[in-house]
Simulated assay, not measured.
Amino acid sequence: MIVINAQQLDNFVWLDELDYSAVAEQSERALNGAQHIEKTIIPAGRSINLYSDFEAASVFNPLFEHANTTLSQFEITIRGTVFNVVWDHSQKAVEGTPHTHFSDSAPTYFQNINLRLKTV
Rank of each mutant, 00 (worst) to 15 (best):
G45T: 10
F60M: 05
D88S: 11
E95T: 00
S58F: 01
K92F: 12
N61R: 12
D53Q: 14
L115T: 02
K39Q: 15
A30F: 14
A6V: 08
F74E: 04
V94W: 09
L18V: 00
V13W: 02
G45C: 04
M1N: 09
R116H: 12
P62H: 11
K39Y: 03
R29A: 15
N49V: 14
H89Q: 10
T69Y: 03
V85G: 03
T40F: 15
V120R: 06
L15Q: 13
L71T: 10
E25Y: 02
F60N: 00
S52V: 02
L63G: 06
A93D: 09
P107I: 15
V59A: 03
L9I: 08
N11Y: 12
S90H: 06
A30E: 12
I4S: 07
I37T: 15
F60D: 02
R79W: 06
Q26M: 10
L15C: 00
L115F: 04
F83N: 11
T81I: 12
S21N: 14
Y109A: 06
I4H: 02
K39W: 03
Y51G: 09
G33S: 12
H89W: 09
W87D: 05
A6N: 13
Y20F: 13
L9P: 04
V23G: 08
V120E: 12
D104H: 15
H101S: 11
N32M: 07
W14V: 02
N32F: 11
E75C: 00
L31I: 14
S103M: 05
N84T: 15
R29V: 05
I42A: 01
T97C: 05
E38G: 09
H101C: 04
I2K: 05
Q26S: 04
F54N: 13
I48D: 00
V85S: 07
Q26P: 01
E38C: 03
E75Y: 05
L31D: 11
